[in-house]
Each structure stands twice: as structure tokens, then as C-alpha cells.
Design a binder for these strands. Structure first.
Lengths: 345, 345
DNA sequence: CTGAAAGCGCTTACAG
DNA sequence: CTGAAAGCGCTTACAG
């Protein structure tokens, strides 16, 4: 084993603004002004400062600056599982927008491995200038505290509890779902449509279920609770749920899977039971994940403008941080993407 | 438009350690000791301090602590494009491990929108305790500077330039590729195998190409430069590249696509030209992305232990940060995943 | 255009 | 077990 030891790592002394000041023969205030262009300084002085900084390979210390200015130039993102690929495009947008606006992104993912304590340490009101909250289970007390001190927070896909007036950004879950269900009813003449729910308490899922019921009632189809099961937005769970439905000999002619991940599990279960999609059963998803067009049959689904959600959330957060007016609720429109799994083509 | 204005955001005064000290009737040093359990304090004092903290809803200020301790408890990650879903599982592992070790994760993605200046601001030696570098194009000068001051840096899938002895973590690109090519040769009797390169300068791709050549020479198949094209690890680019190959009437019986994203483009191009995969042309990828098993035909590919790369990189970085010995080079083993697109089954 | 000094909110020897 | 004081590396009125 070849090993490397870091030489004098702890004893390393970085040059500070004082070292630069000494070398350039000016005061630290002048260095600070040069760094921030916060006041005019004479060209000759500027030259000397510049040279001193280069000679010393000086890099300003952001932490010290943060403490002095009481700003962090950092946006915090609290998200459920950074490992779910569905969120990735949203992450990209958030990162890009934050960066463009001069903010860094501090990400904290609420995986089972991450304790609430670690979150408390990571994302307080002190080391970010604002918080993007994208999780189902948030601590009301903490939110109330953040609201009380006027800390900028934007909620994503989640209505604020107890009327706390944080801006929220979401998508048109209900409309999107009801239109998809109506497509199944009117175009494909489906009547017994399974609805697979997401994780318990998930607001997206609840809204989608409302859309489902709305579409049924619009077409005078009675709601049948036996047609509702739980897929948890998870391939394996959705597979199991579908299996159970089949074992119970439940009769149905379509499945709204809740999300695209679930659709994969649902299709697998149907195929392994000898059923043909879409001939025997129409299958539709929600999200339009990258793989939706790649699977066979290609998946009819609802396109979720997740990038736009990311952008809009950052926009609102920047408004809050800057003390500008913000939008209480933004619901981004969705779009049906009709492919083969519903029966079209 | 309903608008919310944040009340007295800027004027808000957070309680500090001094306020707590005053309220509890002790010194700030005692509060600090309570906070960090850095020295024994009497039970009665502890009670008073605890109560004072709760009454004031005091939250310690990490920035101030960082400045005083000269540690940030933050790990920086420099990555090419946070939006590529292939990286997501790796991100999850990095975040989880960092968090478990008590570190936050500061992510900076080098999208076209992010200037080098913003990176310079975001991830200096001052606001992280160590850096994970996962990009092709890194600034040698900056790396040299970081090495000179003994700053902890671990390189991912990239050999350090100029013999700078940063630890690196990578995967067995060459072995994985050569074994896959040999599978095509020995099991499916393929002889004219296209090799699609990744982006210019990409080290993974270069190593894979070496594996490709090695396998050919092991089986006495002469290397034909006409069989090498560039897919850039991108679906559309790979589609175009395949199109061109077909237009040139190049004869081939297999394609190593470079990565899985490219495989999707390659298959589309082949299908639209009326060719059957795998009967006419074997197609194999690299990565084993989530969709590899979902497409038709299912994709034979090389499984890239990307999560393990993330874990290993954090492990090495923690070693550096703690001043412990570290591994100069770690190459994680890969595994062939044989599905249908090569011609098996 | 420039400098001296106080302050941001903590930690940490040092002394007791 | 506890306190007074210096210090972390910056910024920012204030004065000139």
C-alpha cells in the first residue's frame, strides 16, 4: 500500500488581509476596499495591493467575511433523497440559478442515515441566507421558529402547516391527473381504474387522488375504494401492490400508477401474470422520467415541470432574501404525454 | 397576486452566547463549554444554562464557531453536471457518508452557467475542510497551490496532473471493457466492433479504449481506426455518430457505445436504419444505469460501482483531513451484466 | 482616498 | 468547575 502523508497540514499558516496590508504598506481597510470595490482607491495603491496579494497567493477567507457581514451567500436545500434520479434535473436548475445569483448551494438530504440533529447543525438560520424545503415531514416547531424570526423559507410541493405564510411552489397535480383519467375514460373507454397512492402523507399523491375522484365523478363513475392501493412511488412496492390486486381477482382495466417508478413495477407484475399492456390493462404514470419513453410499451404519463419548480422556488427565495414581494402559491402547469401504454397508437 | 412581505428581516437580532450567559448568570466561556461538552461543568450550572438557551431559543452560530476553530465541518464537491442522473447514486453515498462523519456537503457543479470565478468563491481552502474533485478539466495551477499548502483533495476518475500526489479513486475501466469486448468476440463471434469514445479528454473513455485495443490484440484482430467514432457519452451525439457510420456504409457487427446513455442513441439509429439488435449488430454499454434493464432489448453493459466510488472517495478524504495515511490510487472492480442486446438469451 | 478601532459570535489557553 | 481576555479574519462607520 502506497501511502501519502500530508505535510504540515495543521501548522500551515494562510496569509491574511493583515499580511497583505503589511506587504503593501497600507491598512487592512484598504485591502478590504480593494477586495470588495467598496470605495475608490488610488491607482498606485491598487497596484501595490494587487501585487502583494499575488506574491502572497492570498485568498480571502469567506467565513470571516460572512461573520463580519452577517451574510453567508449560501442557500440551503433540504430534500428527501438526493439519490432519487427523478429530482436530478431540478437539482441542476437550483444549483445553476443559485450560482448565477451569487449563492452557493448547501444540500442536506433526509436519508435515514441523517439524524435531525445533523440537519439542525447543517441548516440553521445562521449558515444559510435562506432555505428551500422539499420534504414531506417537516418539523412544525422549527418552521414556526423560522417564520417568527422572519427567516426566508420556500416550500416545495408542500402546503405550509398551520397557515404559516411561507411561499410554496408546486405543480398542478389535480388537474394533470384528472385530465389523464379522463383520457382513459373517454378515449379508451376504461371504467375500472386502479389508483396507486404515493407514500403516506405525500401531498402530491393526495392532490392526484382528488384529480382521480374528480374525473370519475365528472363521468358519473362511482368511486370504488377497492380500486385504491398503495404503491409508495416505488418500483418494488408497486409491483407487490399490483400482485395483490391480481391475487384478489380484482377486476380492472387501467392503472394510474402514481408515478413513473411505480409504472415499471406495475407493468412487470401485469406481464408476469400474462396480461398485455395496453390491450388488457392501460397503464399510465406521472412525472415523465427519462426512461418513460424507453420502456416497452412506452409510457403514457403526465409531464412534471420539475426544472421549472426548481427555478421558481429559487426565484421566490431570492425575493424573500432581498426583502421583495413574493408569490404565496405557485402551481406550475403539467402536460399529458401520450405514448403507447394507455392504448394509443 | 397575493404577496408576502417578510417583517423586519434585516433588523432581526438573534440571541448570542452573550445573551445566554447574561441570562444564566455565568460567563460566555461556560456556555461554550456546555455547548461543546469541552470541559466539565456543575449540574446546577448546566441546568441554568440549558434553561436560558431554551427561553431565548438560542441557536449557536456555526460561522462564528468555524472562524474560531478554523474548521468548517464541510466537504466540497466539484462535479461536472449535477443534472446527469448517472451520478445520483454516487451523490447519495457521498452525502450520507459525509453527514455520518459530521460533515456538510457543499456542491459546486461546473455547468456552462457557472464561471470559474464562482467556483473560486465557492470552494476555496477556507470554507471547506477538504475537496472532492470529479471533473475532467481542472486547473493545474489551482491544484498545485492546494497541494503546496497541504489542503486535502481527492480526485475522482482522474489521474492527478504533473505527479501531484493527490489520492485518486476510479474504476477498472480497462479491465471491464476488455472483458466485455472479449465476450463479444468469443461468445458472439463479433469481429468488427465499433468503439464510441466519450468527451474529448475524458479519462474513463481513454482507459476503456485501451481495454478495447487490448482485447482485440489478445484475439489477433487488427485495430481499425475507422471503427472508432465519438459518442461523447450523450444520447443524441451517439445517435448522430451511428448515423454517420451507417451512411459511410461501414461494415460492423457490434458497437461498444462508451456508456449507457449513448447506447440508447445507438439503438435508435440502428432501428431506424432497419437493423435488428442484437441479430444484426450487438450493442453493449457501460455504467448499468437504471434504465439499462428497462429498454428493449435489455442492455448488456458493464456495471460501474459508482456508489462505492463515492464512499471510497469520502473515506480517503476523511483520512487526509484527519492527517492519517491514505491510498494513492484505488481502482474499484466492475462487473459484466449480460442481458439481451449483445445476443445472449 | 486612507487609517484606527470596534465589532461580527464564537473558542481557548491561562489563571484561579 | 469557572471567568477574563485575546484571538479567529474579515467589514464598516467614523474621522480626517
Amino acid at each position: 500500500m502506497i501511502s501519502i502523508s500530508q505535510p504540515e497540514m495543521k501548522t500551515q499558516k494562510y496569509p491574511t488581509i493583515r499580511d497583505v496590508a503589511r506587504r503593501a504598506g497600507v491598512s487592512v481597510a484598504t485591502i478590504s476596499r480593494f477586495l470588495n470595490a467598496s470605495a475608490p482607491i488610488s491607482p498606485e495603491t491598487a497596484m501595490r495591493v494587487k501585487q502583494a496579494m499575488e506574491e502572497l497567493k492570498f485568498t480571502p477567507h469567506p467565513i470571516a467575511r460572512n461573520l463580519a457581514t452577517r451574510r453567508t451567500n449560501t442557500i440551503g436545500l433540504l430534500m428527501p433523497d438526493i439519490g432519487r434520479s427523478f429530482y436530478t434535473p431540478m437539482l441542476r436548475e437550483i444549483e445553476a440559478m443559485a450560482s448565477t445569483a451569487g449563492y452557493d448551494l448547501l444540500i442536506h438530504s433526509t436519508s435515514p442515515m441523517n439524524s435531525p440533529q445533523s440537519r439542525r447543525r447543517a441548516l440553521t438560520e445562521h449558515n444559510t441566507d435562506g432555505l428551500l424545503v422539499f420534504i414531506d415531514a417537516l418539523d412544525s416547531d422549527e418552521l414556526r421558529h423560522l417564520r417568527a424570526i422572519g427567516f426566508p423559507v420556500v416550500l416545495m410541493n408542500k402546503t405550509p402547516p398551520d397557515g404559516l405564510d411561507f411561499p410554496m411552489v408546486t405543480i398542478e397535480n389535480q388537474t394533470g391527473t384528472s385530465r389523464m383519467i379522463e383520457h382513459l375514460i373517454t378515449v379508451h373507454n376504461r371504467k375500472r381504474i386502479i389508483f396507486l397512492q404515493g407514500p403516506v402523507g405525500n401531498e402530491d399523491s393526495r392532490e392526484r387522488e382528488q384529480g382521480y375522484r374528480l374525473a370519475l365523478s365528472n363521468h358519473h363513475i362511482p368511486f370504488d375504494p377497492n380500486l385504491v392501493a398503495r404503491g409508495c412511488f416505488d418500483t418494488q412496492r408497486a409491483f407487490d401492490a399490483t400482485r395483490q390486486l391480481l391475487e384478489k381477482n380484482m377486476s380492472f382495466d387501467a392503472i394510474f400508477t402514481g408515478d413513473d417508478d411505480s409504472a415499471v413495477g406495475v407493468m412487470d407484475a401485469l406481464k408476469s401474470a400474462g396480461l398485455d399492456v395496453p390491450r388488457d390493462v392501460s397503464v399510465v404514470g406521472f412525472d415523465d422520467s427519462v426512461f418513460a419513453r424507453l420502456i416497452t410499451p412506452s409510457l403514457t404519463t403526465v409531464q412534471s415541470p420539475i426544472e421549472q419548480v426548481g427555478r421558481e422556488a429559487v426565484t421566490q427565495l431570492l425575493h424573500l432574501i432581498r426583502g421583495e414581494a413574493s408569490q404565496a402559491r405557485t402551481a406550475l402547469p403539467v402536460k399529458l404525454v401520450i405514448r403507447e401504454s394507455c392504448g394509443c397508437r
